[in-house]
Design a protein around this nucleic acid. Structure first.
Lengths: 191, 191, 191, 191
DNA sequence: CAGTAAACGAGACGGTACGTCCCGTCTTATG
DNA sequence: CATAAGACGGGACGTACCGTCTCGTTTACTG
């Protein structure tokens, strides 16, 4: 063995970075179905051989390429559950309007529906995306602003549910009036 | 000329029926991505040539094959907005748990995100699926059970949003306790 | 079936012809090892898919591509064994000097040595190449110009052996003096 | 400097020996086409880097690996040209039947046909193989058993030609009857 | 009920992607 | 400084589908 335990060959780093970047690019443009190893290879200048050296399958590559997306925005701390929830929801709405992953998520959901390998990807991504709601929820429960049986998932469903619905199902603009109402409704319900 | 204006060749009818049936089958099993003309041809016994003769594109075939799914269940009429909404939501939850289209919708959402031809399909399907909420909402507004500015979409978002979220995003079981709570929460706020 | 028994699709004919031509081209230039399906496809403009539709393997393609080479030149009939043999040997020497297959034969011999599929090819080619010696030999035996136990192979070995040796093993020019002497030597002994 | 002028690093000697041995092994088994640097490296335990350090190309390695094969058998001295030739031919036939290089020669011939670097290898090998015929021929000419214009190459062609032909072209067994006849024929012709 | 035009199946075709294999070169770290 | 380990780009392999296309053959309507 010519390599000490944890240092990583710079060539490997360079190759992996280039591949992941282009994979993410293709993913953003065409969803999961739009990512082909051949095309990634062509655009990144990294040979297919090398790609398969680092990732055993297309799914594995996708998983890693997605691992950076939806990284948690800073959790707001306004002092009240209402303020925190409003800030978080505005942020989520903004991302749904503009973030690249917003166009990709449906294809991940679809893939999770039938490819077990990618179901894990979906779970990770979802957890990362929703973690701030957990923080805010726990904080509010500690302050007694929420009923004892309300958990992160109730809050997420009450807020993200309508937003997602609007973004992908009724496909109407996520205007701020709607977002504001969703927050108000959620506060009324969850109180 | 061998054909009068509107009568349709029985062969055409037979071919189209067989193709649509198999398309729907494949659609249910593998989502939009799982439908390939080759496979439809193989299973239906109708040649590819003939399929492309009747539908100009894969998208067109999908649109027609989807036109039958999500057909509106009978709209309940219990006399109160609460009763109607509960019945409707239970029905929706049941379909999300078991109906074939539930596994297909994410792929349609994804397709709508990038193929304009299929965006129309998504819109149709969504309209059909949500129509009962419109009926119930209008009825409730007429009875004064709802604020004047509440429309179908607010109701849909408040109820279907959390359900969809649970079905496809947090991917937890849609147990009846959750469904009941969603209805109650919605009523609290929309009243 | 849309095609009657023996007629052949013109497209098939065109494709096969183009592929065989380019295969032969590559074969001449680089021997058996110089033929790759990818390159044949590239040069002939016929897709790899189509090539594999018509030939199950690289070996099968090579076999067919070689089937036209070494086609028997007209068998001379000078009236005497000596005259026939001289003409035949001159012709063989000329081909060894210039014919494209002369540069290819060693690679076929080599392939025959280890790939059974190609051993058949070698046998066919060899039979075709040496057939004229058989004709001439039989004719001479009928006329009593040859001992009763002399067969085609003795004649071939006595004449082609030295020629081949010179062409591929000592690698000296096949000048006409050498050819003449080979014929004379053969006649001395075989008479 | 750690090393004096002409002594050779023991590591170098060990590496080269291991590489040459394995190269010869592969050569015997699969001909020239069967030798790959990767495989040599794998089997010999010597890294590819090291191999390419010692030999500039695959051809150079092959040349050196072949330099030991076909080493001249002891030249017989029976007292007569006939006896010598018979002994030499029997020996050659025996090698063609069993020696490892017999399966390799066609691939060398083929390589010589198109790679100049390997043409030299072929020439060396051929010279080594045929040298005994030269010795015997000169001896016979000195004794007056051969016409003055007969040289080694005439003898080689007359004897090795038919043998090679039989071994690689007609691909029939090199039985001793055939070998005996070849010798007799050669003696008749060359006398 | 015969003729004809349409519908039809078979399948050839050029593409593109797949995942694997092996090549020869090049880089890095070790001894 | 020779070496082992192995990353790298290149390219061929044979397979699977894709959607387009060109055929020759039914087959159902129509005059």
């Amino acid at each position: 063995m010519a390599r000490s335990g944890d240092s990583i060959d710079v060539r490997v780093q360079r190759s992996k970075a280039a591949v992941l970047a282009q994979t993410y690019e293709l993913l953003s443009a065409g969803g999961i179905g739009g990512v082909s190893i051949d095309e990634v290879s062509r655009r990144s200048g990294v040979s297919k051989t090398t790609i398969y050296r680092h990732w055993p399958s297309r799914a594995a590559l996708l998983v890693e390429a997605c691992s950076t997306i939806g990284s948690a925005p800073p959790v707001p701390d306004t002092g009240s559950f209402g303020g925190d929830l409003a800030a978080l929801t505005e942020e989520l709405a903004e991302q749904l309007r503009s973030a690249r992953w917003a166009a990709v998520l449906p294809s991940i959901v679809d893939a999770a529906e039938r490819e077990p390998e990618l179901a894990g990807l979906h779970a990770d991504l979802h957890a990362r995306l929703m973690a701030p709601f957990g923080v805010v929820t726990e904080r509010a429960r500690a302050r007694g602003e929420l009923a004892a049986d309300r958990r992160q998932d109730d809050v997420s469903a009450a807020v993200a549910g309508p937003l997602f619905y609007r973004r992908w199902y009724s496909r109407e603009p996520l205007d701020s009036a709607f977002v504001r109402r969703v927050v108000e409704d959620a506060l009324v319900r969850l109180r």
